[in-house]
Computed example of a mutant assay.
Amino acid sequence: MSKPRYQLKAEFFKTLGHPARIRVLELLGEREHAVAEMLPEVGIEPAHLSQQLAVLRRANLVKTRKEGSNVHYSLTSPHVAELLRVARTTLSGVLAEQAELLADLQAAQGERHPRA
């Protein structure tokens, strides 16, 4: 018996639920990268980056290409980059609404407690 779609989606989003993996996917959304290129951009230890890349490989979100001693990573689908763009747009909207609410609350507080 196969897993329900909602459970598969939850597992997919769990895979995305790590800042280093998100950063890797953002970088790969721009272009293919060698591991050595990603290290300074992701800002984690090489062994930790290797672990995160393995998680993304197992989830079939990235693929590898070997060139000499270098391993290059790329996205398996442009939809991954599109998903991250949609997430960024959604997050920007949420943060803008929160900033507006905060400004309203601060204005209301200023009306109740005028400064001398």
Rank of each mutant, 00 (worst) to 15 (best):
S2L: 01
K3V: 01
R5L: 02
Y6E: 00
A10D: 05
A10W: 01
E11N: 02
E11A: 08
E11D: 12
F12L: 09
F12I: 02
K14D: 14
T15Y: 01
L16K: 06
G17L: 01
G17I: 02
H18M: 07
A20T: 05
R21G: 01
R21A: 03
R23C: 04
L25T: 05
E26W: 06
G29P: 05
E30R: 08
R31L: 06
H33G: 05
A34R: 14
V35Q: 14
E37W: 04
M38T: 07
P40C: 05
G43N: 11
P46L: 14
P46Y: 12
H48I: 10
H48K: 12
A54V: 11
A54D: 12
A54G: 13
A54Y: 08
L56S: 08
L56C: 10
R58L: 15
L61S: 04
T64A: 11
T64I: 08
T64D: 08
T64Q: 12
R65L: 13
R65W: 09
K66H: 11
K66D: 11
K66G: 10
K66T: 15
K66Q: 14
G68F: 13
N70L: 10
V71C: 15
V71D: 12
V71Y: 11
Y73F: 14
S74P: 08
S74I: 08
S77F: 05
S77G: 08
P78A: 14
P78I: 12
A81P: 04
L83Q: 07
L83K: 03
L83G: 05
L84A: 09
L84F: 06
A87H: 10
T90V: 13
T90R: 10
T90S: 13
S92G: 05
S92T: 06
V94H: 03
V94C: 02
V94K: 02
E97L: 09
E97W: 03
Q98Y: 03
A99V: 09
A103L: 04
A103Y: 00
Q106A: 09
A107E: 05
A107S: 05
A107Q: 05
A107F: 01
A108N: 04
G110E: 13
E111A: 13
R112D: 11
R112G: 05
P114A: 00
P114R: 03
A116L: 01
A116F: 03
A116T: 03
A116S: 04
